Amino acid sequence: LKTAGVNTTDKEMEVLHLRNVSFEDAGEYTCLAGNSIGLSHHSAWLTVLEALEERPAVMTSPLYLEIIIYCTGAFLISCMVGSVIVYKMKSGTKKSDFHSQMAVHKLAKSIPLRRQVTVSADSSASMNSGVLLVRPSRLSSSGTPMLAGVSEYELPEDPRWELPRDRLVLGKPLGEGCFGQVVLAEAIGLDKDKPNRVTKVAVKMLKSDATEKDLSDLISEMEMMKMIGKHKNIINLLGACTQDGPLYVIVEYASKGNLREYLQARRPPGLEYCYNPSHNPEEQLSSKDLVSCAYQVARGMEYLASKKCIHRDLAARNVLVTEDNVMKIADFGLARDIHHIDYYKKTTNGRLPVKWMAPEALFDRIYTHQSDVWSFGVLLWEIFTLGGSPYPGVPVEELFKLLKEGHRMDKPSNCTNELYMMMRDCWHAVPSQRPTFKQLVEDLDRIVALTSNQEYLDLSMPLDQYSPSFPDTRSSTCSSGEDSVFSHEPLPEEPCLPRHPAQLANGGLKRR
């Protein structure tokens, strides 16, 4: 031991701790050491302190810390799992109470259905409401065949629209698609105040090879029609059969078919879209009749726009005509997947739907009320060519290029400059510069009032120099000039209409 001194630092001082000593042992101690050379000694003081209470040693090893962490984590996880189980049990009790009230408590799974309603004014964004509309049932219905791709499903009954099956008599087919079909039928007692009145209706139903998605689409269309409500110039929902059998959606019946066929059937002799010497046209149409058709469609679209509904496929083929020549817009409630459109795929009647699409819908897939206005301009062109085919002879690839360059279709022969300028306004490259349906209704209403009933179509000018029955994407082998976009001569082996020498072909294109 070194004694503290003047020249001794703290580091040089050493402390020796002795245990089991008493206060009597306190004092100075000297350590002597010697050898043959000499003797040396050092002294140190022993200080006795009071004994401290002994405390248990605390484990601070890493293993002990890990044990604490794992135990704490396990406890927290157990609490979370327990909370989830309690929540599930409570929510399951509430669901079972709800389904027992709906009398569908025996169901095993559900079809996820979404009601898609486009509400954005400047995009294709949609509001999806995840309302459960249908659930599968283990119960089988008697007297009705089961669908191959869709098991029997039981829908919640809506008393406002439900019609008993025994009050619906199915008739002949009116048309069909890939998985759905429409048949003519007679409904008894659609009007609650007149329970014995028989009404001719159209009934939409699924085919035998339909899938769950097809069922989902049909129900979504029905729900959309319920929500949009009734208007004179749209196909209205009349009722539905949802209980004890396949789903039947009952809508208004339009006896004169779609507008395109309606116009073609009323072309003057010699100007029909397909040469037929025995062709006997229906009643002749006046200019006022054509303007009235456009006015009614505009009114229907104005109503749909007021309900925040974007059609996305407005064309003469999707406008139906009733016995009283009332125009009714159809298929506005269809669920369309705008992100998976095949631009080169034709519709069932051979038309390319892209020829009715606005550039922003075609290139950027942006659907708005103003893109519907563009389609309405093409529909106007169809009306005043009596069912002509837009951009005849123009392949899709060429159409993309022409639209980007600002080309537009030429004025039809039997169309006034004012109406043609309306078409051109609908085809404005900037969507915000196109008229609204409200403005179109006002303009067409004024034109109808000024147009005489006696103004019949000028038969001295050809209505349509093209054969719409030909595929639109076909290139002409005998077109006049180098560019078949601006002219389209008859093919030698097929009868077509004579070309008027002083008139540019109706399907020609102009640059805006």
Rank of each mutant, 00 (worst) to 15 (best):
L190P: 08
Y391C: 04
P412T: 00
D217A: 13
L450M: 11
L403P: 02
K226E: 14
S371T: 04
Y391N: 05
I250T: 09
T385S: 09
L463Q: 09
K404T: 08
C178W: 06
P277R: 10
K308Q: 11
I366T: 10
D191H: 08
N258I: 00
P435A: 01
G189E: 11
T368I: 03
H339P: 04
I310L: 06
F376L: 04
E382K: 06
G229A: 15
N233I: 04
I366S: 03
R260L: 02
E405G: 06
P353R: 02
D209H: 04
F179Y: 05
K207T: 02
G300V: 02
T199P: 09
G393A: 12
D364H: 14
C309Y: 15
S287Y: 15
H231N: 04
K200N: 06
P269R: 14
Y344D: 00
A335V: 01
L247S: 07
M357K: 15
I383T: 11
V326E: 06
K346R: 14
P471S: 04
D472H: 10
F470C: 10
E221V: 02
S389A: 06
P173A: 09
D443E: 07
D464H: 11
M205R: 07
S292T: 11
F363L: 07
D244E: 15
F384V: 10
V373G: 01
Q243E: 09
P269Q: 05
L362F: 03
N414I: 12
K288N: 08
A361E: 02
V198E: 07
D217Y: 08
T368P: 03
Y344S: 02
E221A: 03
L402M: 04
P462T: 07
R424G: 11
M409I: 00
P471H: 09
A185T: 09
L450V: 12
L215F: 07
D214V: 14
E360G: 03
A315G: 00
K438R: 14
V485D: 15
S479P: 15
E176Q: 14
H340R: 05
Q465E: 06
D214N: 05
L271M: 15
P281A: 11
P431R: 05
M409L: 09
A240V: 07
H340P: 02
P390R: 02
D372H: 14
D425H: 12
A265P: 06
L457V: 10
D443N: 08
A294P: 01
W374S: 07
E323A: 09
Q439H: 10
T368N: 13
R197P: 05
D483E: 15
N276K: 11
D342H: 14
F376Y: 06
S452A: 10
V291L: 06
L399R: 01
F376S: 02
Q433L: 08
E442D: 10
R434I: 00
V396E: 07
D214G: 03
R267W: 00
Q296E: 13
C309W: 15
S255C: 12
N276H: 07
T347R: 09
P435L: 01
K404N: 10
L238P: 05
E272Q: 05
K346E: 15
P412A: 00
G333C: 02
M421R: 07
N453S: 10
F332S: 03
R299Q: 13
H340D: 06
M461I: 09
E302Q: 06
F179S: 03
L290R: 01
E360Q: 01
H339R: 13
L379P: 05
Q454L: 07
P359S: 01
L362S: 01
R446L: 03
G257A: 09
S208W: 03
Y262H: 06
L403V: 13
M301I: 08
V448E: 11
I234T: 03
A298G: 05
K213N: 10
D191G: 06
D483Y: 15
D372Y: 04
T451S: 08
S278T: 04
P281L: 10
P471L: 10
V378M: 02
